[in-house]
Simulated assay, not measured.
Amino acid sequence: MVREDGKRNFVLREEDGTETSVFSGSMPRQAALKAARRLDPAGSEDDAKSDAVEIRLREKGTDKVHIFDAWAWNSSAPEDKPGWMEGKITKGNVSKKGIEHLDE
């Protein structure tokens, strides 16, 4: 369901069908990128991509489940970072595999 601000809510589904975290975004990929940043990060992007994890995001209010391969890695913070930011940040990326429809 689309909110007034144009964003949609997506729920992270585990393999057993339980739903845990909620991520919002105007597109499914935007929510998937937020979910990817919560994965255990690898040392570099190349290492992380080889260890991609499948994540499933169900769009709230629908039976659509968006399936992505996701990976995360540690990177150096930018030079113009704010004072509160640490020296390392976690970056993430995703690759869409497809959409499934629930039969529930």
Rank of each mutant, 00 (worst) to 15 (best):
V2D: 06
V2H: 00
V2A: 05
R3N: 12
E4W: 02
D5E: 06
K7I: 00
R8M: 11
N9L: 10
F10G: 01
V11F: 07
L12R: 07
L12H: 08
E14T: 13
D16A: 06
G17I: 07
G17S: 04
T18K: 14
T18W: 09
T18D: 08
E19Q: 09
E19W: 08
E19L: 09
S21W: 11
S21E: 11
V22T: 09
S24V: 14
G25T: 10
M27G: 02
M27F: 13
P28H: 04
Q30A: 15
Q30M: 13
Q30R: 15
A31S: 07
L33E: 05
L33T: 05
L33D: 02
A35P: 01
A36I: 01
R38K: 15
R38F: 13
L39M: 03
D40T: 14
A42H: 07
G43M: 09
S44N: 04
E45Y: 09
E45A: 12
D46F: 14
D46Y: 12
D46L: 15
K49G: 06
K49C: 07
S50E: 15
S50K: 15
S50N: 11
D51Y: 08
D51C: 06
V53H: 04
V53T: 04
V53S: 03
E54C: 06
E54Q: 09
E54G: 04
I55P: 01
I55E: 00
L57V: 03
R58Q: 12
E59R: 07
K60A: 12
K60Q: 10
T62G: 04
T62R: 06
T62D: 03
D63G: 11
V65C: 03
H66I: 04
F68K: 00
D69L: 13
D69M: 13
A70G: 00
A70I: 03
W71D: 02
W73L: 01
W73E: 00
A77L: 12
P78R: 03
D80V: 02
D80W: 14
K81H: 09
G83H: 13
W84Q: 09
W84K: 10
M85N: 04
M85H: 08
M85W: 12
M85R: 10
M85Q: 09
G87M: 10
G87R: 09
G87P: 04
T90M: 08
T90I: 15
T90E: 01
G92Y: 01
G92T: 01
S95W: 15
K96L: 10
K96C: 11
K97N: 08
G98H: 10
G98W: 13
H101K: 15
D103T: 11
E104M: 11
